[in-house]
Design a binder for these strands. Structure first.
Length: 414
DNA sequence: TATAATGATTTACC
DNA sequence: GGTAAATCATTATA
């Protein structure tokens, strides 16, 4: 319900500049009467209004005042009404639409979540729970946003209707044209849309916070499962002289380990640096994987053509990306089996025969041992004096170790 | 609970 | 753009 003060404000707001022409006394009287209406009781005011409406000068005065208002207030303010759409509001609207808060409900949130997940390179299987959590929270935000928006719209409509009724009522006693009512309505709408903008801004902030938390959650790492680690380690140790998987190899490893290519790259990056930093610590691990690979290779070789195990993605045959000519590392690792460090029981007595078999295969495919002593060939670290695996400090996506084995192992000081 | 292990990120380099 | 190296942050383990 409109208070008396607000009513007075509206009356004053819409009051035109005093008309100068004739009948100054009459006009003054009428204005005075209008002003005093607000200080009167309702009954008195109604009586006064009635008296004013019946005043002989009323129609003429009303028209004159309307005319003057048209010429002054409306013409001045009319120019301001055609405003371009607020760019900030447009940004907010676009963002809410993109994030799935406004617009059609299905898919928006999950798309954003998927994008966030993709950006962080997370594993697919682990994402679903976080995605659903993200979607649930986004849905909450969406619900609150729409509820509030509805409330604002309802309030806006109610207020507009109320003001319009009031102005229509007042138009009987003061000059208010339909155009002016329209203008007043648009002012009200602008006020409410600025409130809506605040709502949209808050909603955007909430979505941004949610999103950043989601990304933070993605940062929470989970250890790869044992099988994935074994696959990666097998590749690493069987390519110890050049542990730089090609893009294809990375993709295949990623597929086999159910992780992303980026995670494969991360893993190899970490592995290389950590291996190099503390070779001794990894020696046992290296021997174990070398032995496993050797056994697999020997078994395969004794059974026929292919010298690779199912769990060795890089081995010749299975993946197609890595053939025996790449297996200088394997040979070196096998060599290490005969060294002092290896005590593994699983290798068994046939290690030497496997070595011989492998030596044969290797000599056929690349003449790997040519020009190198056994000592030179055995380089568990596979790292040169510069601290790198290769002469080139930072190889870029090596498809296969195409350089000669001699260059790889020219320095075995480690 | 301290420490080690490990996946991810950042920065600098080539 | 891929990598080394340092670092961060979380998880696993003794």
């Amino acid at each position: 319900m409109m208070s008396r003060r607000r009513s007075l404000t509206l009356v004053l707001f819409a009051m035109p500049p005093p008309a100068q022409p004739v009948l100054k006394q009459d006009i003054g009287d009428i204005l005075q009467q209008i002003m005093t209406i607000t200080d009167q009781s309702l009954d008195e005011a109604q009586a006064r209004k009635h008296a004013l409406n019946c005043h002989r000068m009323k129609p003429a005065l009303f028209n004159v005042l309307c005319e003057i208002k048209e010429k002054t207030v409306l013409s001045i303010r009319g120019a301001q009404e055609e405003e371009p759409p607020d760019p900030q509001l447009m940004r907010l609207d676009n963002m809410l639409l993109a994030e799935g808060v406004s617009g059609p409900e299905k898919g928006g949130g999950s798309a954003a979540a998927a994008a966030a997940a993709a950006a962080s390179g997370g594993a697919g299987a682990d994402n679903s729970a976080e995605h659903s959590d993200y979607r649930a929270k986004l849905s909450q935000i969406r619900q609150i946003y729409h509820t509030e928006l509805e409330k604002y719209e309802q309030a806006c409509n109610e207020f507009t209707t109320h003001v319009m009724n009031l102005l229509r009522e007042q138009s009987r006693t003061r000059p208010i044209s339909p155009k002016e009512i329209e203008r007043m309505v648009s002012i009200i709408h602008r006020k409410f849309s600025s409130i809506q903008m605040q709502l949209k801004q808050s909603t955007c902030e909430a979505v941004m916070i949610l999103r950043s938390r989601f990304l933070d959650a993605r940062r929470k790492r989970r250890n790869f499962n044992k099988q994935a680690t074994e696959i990666l380690n097998e590749y690493f140790y069987s390519h110890l002289s050049n542990p730089y998987p090609s893009e294809e190899a990375k993709e295949e490893l990623a597929k086999k380990c159910a992780i992303t290519v980026a995670q494969v790259s991360n893993w190899f990056g970490n592995k290389r640096i950590r291996y190099k930093k503390n070779i001794g610590k990894f020696q046992e691990e290296a021997n174990m994987y070398a032995a496993r690979t050797a056994v697999n290779a020997a078994n395969a070789s004794s059974h026929g053509s292919q010298a690779n195990s199912p769990s060795t993605p890089n081995s010749a045959g299975s993946g197609g990306s890595f053939n025996m000519s790449n297996s200088g590392d394997l040979f070196m690792s096998v060599q290490s089996l005969n060294g002092d460090s290896y005590q593994g029981a699983q290798v068994g007595a046939n290690v030497q025969s496997q070595v011989d078999t492998l030596r044969h295969v290797i000599s056929q495919t690349g003449g790997y041992s040519e020009g190198l002593t056994a000592n030179q060939m055995y380089s568990p670290q596979g790292i040169n004096a510069n601290g790198g695996w290769q002469d080139a400090p930072t190889p870029s996506s090596v498809t296969s170790p195409t350089e000669g084995p001699g260059s790889v192992h020219s320095d075995t000081s480690n």
